[in-house]
Design a protein around this nucleic acid. Structure first.
Length: 334
DNA sequence: GGGCCATGAGCAT
DNA sequence: TGCTCCTGGCCCG
């Protein structure tokens, strides 16, 4: 259940763990067996994210040690995690980059947690020779195995091999991605302002802005003081630009820390007055330092329905919007 | 063991 | 607007 920041972290992780070397690609579950066979044994040369889409680029077949491979010459694995998809990583402990993001992880797409330091892991650390991964757990659509690490994909909404032209077609259709340096904010501003569709719905439309999900949607609208139901045409362009700029900061923070935190410091620390969130509902991506901002102080409105608004005390509301829960404060957002 | 839930999106109607 | 797909964790009994 990732939003864009998680997908960008994933792309970076794939580049770090597997980039520049051949990988074994299999489909333990079998449903992706033909695609896996196409990529098996090839060199991973690109790893990139656009919104919630991840693309892994593989060099053409044949020996190309250390050679640069243009995107146009690559074949791509396109993965979209959807609601349930997740990547599980494990390594032999020798890969520095793994530790740079905390530790080998499991279920990065859903809940980014550190692997427990099991005796098995420690034993593996001391072993010389090829990394022998554990047997896949659950319905593993794709397993990517490198010399020192393994990644297992379960439950994706999309997992397919595409040409570079097909990758470009997907990317071109997407709206600008606030995390990417090459994003054009004006595309978002103009398009959102042109449509009478509620801004709360437009933010969830990946053709309008790529990478925003249900949390960033709700939180960014709260921070902007915007009623989610206001038509795009009724939101001034300057406000849309400010909304974009805010999302750039929030989402890039998310890439950096592996967590979504949208509350400002002055609005935290009031959990006892305003009520606690249900601990079951606040699971989110973490990056090994969950106490920097406690989990129940990370959001203004997301999953806080019925609790007092951190700013004005009005009970936070929730309603169904196009099949998704939409959280907002009716007083602060008008 | 059953039911419910989820940070998503394509497609039919 | 509603259905469908994808999967697993957690609560409840």
């Amino acid at each position: 259940m990732p939003e864009g920041h998680t997908v960008h972290r994933l792309a970076r992780t794939f580049g770090d763990l597997f980039g520049g070397a051949p990988v074994a690609v299999t489909s333990p579950q079998g449903r992706f067996a033909p695609g896996a066979a196409l990529l098996d044994g090839r060199v991973l040369v690109h790893a990139q994210a656009f919104g919630k889409q991840m693309f892994l680029g593989f060099a053409p077949r044949g020996p190309m040690p250390g050679e640069r491979v243009a995107e146009a010459e690559s074949d791509w694995l396109r993965v979209h995690l959807g609601l349930y998809g997740s990547w599980t990583f494990a390594g032999d402990g020798s890969v520095a980059v793994v530790h740079a993001i905390g530790a080998p992880r499991r279920r990065v797409g859903e809940t980014e947690t550190s692997l427990p330091d099991t005796p098995d892991d420690e034993a593996q650390d001391d072993v010389d020779g090829p990394f022998v991964p554990a047997a896949p757990r659950g319905q593993v659509r794709v397993r990517i195995l490198g010399e020192h690490a393994v990644a297992d994909l379960t439950g994706p909404t999309a997992c397919e091999v595409v040409t570079d032209a097909e990758r470009l077609a997907v990317v071109t259709r997407l709206g600008p991605d606030p995390i990417r340096d090459d994003a054009d904010p004006q595309r978002f501003v103009d398009r959102a302002h042109r449509s009478r569709t509620a801004i709360g719905l437009q933010l969830m439309n990946q053709d309008v802005i790529a990478g925003v999900g249900n949390i960033y949607r709700a939180e960014a609208l709260f921070r902007a003081g915007l009623d989610p139901s206001r038509p795009g045409t009724a939101v001034p362009k300057e406000t849309l630009r400010a909304l974009w700029d805010d999302l750039v900061g929030l989402m890039r923070d998310g890439v950096r820390t592996g967590r979504i935190v949208t509350t400002r410091p002055e609005h935290r620390g009031r959990g006892h007055e305003l009520g606690h969130m249900d601990a079951r509902r606040v699971r989110q991506n973490t990056d090994g330092d969950p106490n920097v901002v406690s989990r129940d102080e990370s959001f203004y409105v997301y999953h806080r329905d019925g609790l007092a608004c951190r700013v004005c005390g009005t009970p936070v509301q929730v309603r169904d919007a196009a099949g998704r829960n939409l959280f907002w404060c009716p007083t602060c957002q008008s």
